[in-house]
C-alpha cells in the first residue's frame, strides 16, 4: 500500500508562478486522470514532483509513503518508487538502450539483475510493446519516432516497477495501434501489484483503454474540478472552455 500526497504545491519557473496550490492524493491500486488544456501546468506538476532543476518549489509538500520527496535528489526520488514517463523523452547520444536499462534497473533495485533473467525480461517487455529487438543496441531515444519514444517510456515503467507512476501525455501523438499497445502496457503495470497511476492527458481518448478511478480537471495551475470517470465524459462533450475562462 503506497500513497503519494501532494499538498498545497506551488511552483515557479524563472520567477513566474505556474502551479498555484495543488492538492492531490494518489493511492496504490487507483488511477487518477489529470486533464487540462495546454499550458495549464500539467507537465510542471509532473516535473516538479520528479525534481527537474528548472522548477522552483515555492511552497507545499510532496510525500511518498510519508517520505518528503522534495528533500531528495532526482535519482533518490526514483529509487524511492516514483516514476515519470516524460512527454518529450530526450535523446542521449552514445548511451545504448540496453546499457541504460541495465544501469537503471541496477540502481533502482539496488543490485545488478542476473544477466540471463534481465535479457529475458527485456525481451518479453519489448515484445509486449512491439519494440524491435534492434532497439536495444540503439542510442537512447536517438532517432526514435514519437510513438517509439512513448513505448520505450512504458518499457522502462514495466522494468522499473515503481510504486507510483506519473505519465505525462504518454498518449499524445500516438496513432490508434500504438495507443492500444501503450495502454495495454499501462494496464499490465496496474495489474502487476500495488501501484498507483497519475495519468496526465489532454484528450479523453486514452481513458477508453485505461479506466481511471478519479478525474481531476487542471486549469491555471491548479485543480478546478474533480469527480469520477463520468467527469471525463462531460469534458469530452463540453471541452475545457468553461474552465479556461474561469481561471483567467
Amino acid at each position: 500500500m503506497s500513497t503519494l500526497e501532494i499538498r498545497d504545491l506551488k511552483v515557479a519557473v524563472e520567477d513566474k508562478e505556474i502551479l498555484r496550490g495543488v492538492n492531490l492524493t494518489v493511492q496504490s491500486g487507483k488511477t487518477h486522470a489529470i486533464m487540462g488544456p495546454n499550458g495549464s501546468g500539467k507537465s510542471t506538476l509532473a516535473y516538479a514532483i520528479a525534481g527537474h532543476p528548472k522548477y522552483t518549489i515555492t511552497s507545499g509538500e510532496v510525500l511518498l509513503d510519508g517520505v518528503d520527496l522534495l528533500a531528495l535528489t532526482v535519482d533518490e526520488r526514483a529509487r524511492a518508487g516514483l516514476f515519470l514517463a516524460m512527454q518529450y523523452p530526450v535523446e542521449v547520444p552514445g548511451v545504448s538502450v540496453s546499457n541504460f536499462l541495465r544501469t537503471a534497473v541496477t540502481s533502482v533495485r539496488g543490485e545488478a539483475p542476473k544477466l540471463r533473467q534481465f535479457a529475458k525480461d527485456l525481451k518479453s517487455g519489448m515484445d509486449a510493446l512491439a519494440i524491435d529487438a534492434a532497439f536495444a543496441q540503439r542510442n537512447l531515444n536517438e532517432g526514435f519516432s514519437g510513438g517509439e519514444k512513448k513505448r520505450h517510456e512504458i518499457l522502462q515503467l514495466e522494468l522499473l516497477r515503481p510504486k507510483i507512476a506519473v505519465l505525462d501525455e504518454t498518449d499524445s501523438g500516438l496513432d490508434v495501434d500504438a495507443l492500444r499497445v501503450v495502454s495495454e502496457g499501462i494496464n499490465r503495470f496496474r495489474a502487476s501489484g500495488d501501484t498507483g497511476v497519475l495519468l496526465i492527458t489532454h484528450y479523453t481518448r486514452i481513458l477508453r483503454y485505461v479506466k481511471p478511478d478519479f478525474v481531476h480537471v487542471f486549469a491555471g495551475g491548479k485543480i478546478v474540478e474533480e469527480g469520477g470517470p463520468e467527469l471525463a465524459d462531460k469534458l469530452e462533450a463540453e471541452g475545457y472552455e468553461q474552465y479556461t475562462k474561469a481561471s483567467v
Partner: peptide, 8 residues
C-alpha cells in the same frame, strides 16, 4: 535529469 529520473 532523464538518467537520474530512472534512479541512476
Amino acid at each position: 535529469f532523464y538518467l537520474q529520473a530512472r534512479g541512476i
